[in-house]
Amino acid sequence: MDVVSNIVEKSLRDAEKSITVHKHLDLQYDLGTLLAVDTNSLDLKSLRDNRNEYLLNLSRDNVQLLLNKIWELPTQQIDETLVVKLPPAKFVLPRARPVPKPKPLTKWEQFAKLKGIKKTKKAKLSWDEQLNKWVPLYGYKRAAAERERDWVLEVPATADPMEDQFLRKKTGRVEKVAKNELQRLRNIAKARNIKIPRVGVTHPDVSSSKDLQTSITVARSATASLGKFQDKLPKEKEARGVNELVPGSNRKRKLPAVSNEQERDHNLQIIDSVLSKRPKINIEKAMARQIHSKPVEQSEENSRSKPNTHGKRKNLKQKGKKPASNNNKVQKKGKKGGGRKRR
């Protein structure tokens, strides 16, 4: 007796310790998100009677199954702890923000990429031979050093001797900053696909050949005959996209005269399209009314034979062409014939 009870006790203990769980349907696992979905139907009776205990056991079994899978994954020893490597998550969750798009390149970046120009880092300090000291790349110390170095400025041979070279230098710098800002804005506008208003004729130092072409085209049209009799250079091209600036460019050309026959055909076509109009029928509404008015009949037909009902349906689909009976006279929405859409 003692032996038997021992064995029974041991088997019970083993069952308590066991890590195997039996399920009718296998769970769906996503080890990356530590997720297990059990689609087995629930035991409703025990769910009603002792809900919490039942849920505890159910969850325990499912967690056991999930962790059995996780314990099978390859592990790694990091700082005296076992770390298991998880696979990527399978369950697809929506993002919080849209996928980032690559930033559009600025005009300079595009050019540099084309030419293979790489950015080189400039040193923060550079040795100034004149002042005999280290001068920073930018900042107030740089400005002070420049002021100290350029206490006198040479007047270039081509320049007006009475011009203030200090003022010229200052305005040149301001203009450079303004140009840079303009280019920055232009890049932003281009990246966001915004149309920016025309700047007009800019300083010749800043403007391109395209701008020059535009101003020539516009200026030429400023005569009484809208530039019709103005001379052109041999291979000169008109600037494009300046219609709004050139008067008369938007005026439509007169259409060539149409032959009698063509005109007649055209007019007949219009008359045909008007006369071929048929009343529009809301197909869904018509179908609903049809079904609603004959529910008994249809159900009888259904019970009689299946293929017969199929035939009926087919007839319904071919509406218009061959009405199966007078009741089924329903017209198709996208009817044939060249009628214009009724509004």
Binding site: G32, T33, L34, L35, L67, I70, W71, T75, Q76, T81, L82, V83, V84, K85, L86, P88, A89, F91, L93, P94
Partner: peptide, 17 residues
């Protein structure tokens, strides 16, 4: 899942489950 699943991790400590 979105609410309670935290960020995706490549590895997890076994004792941390």
């Amino acid at each position: 899942i979105d609410l309670f699943n935290r960020e995706h991790v490549d590895g997890i400590r076994l004792q941390g489950l």
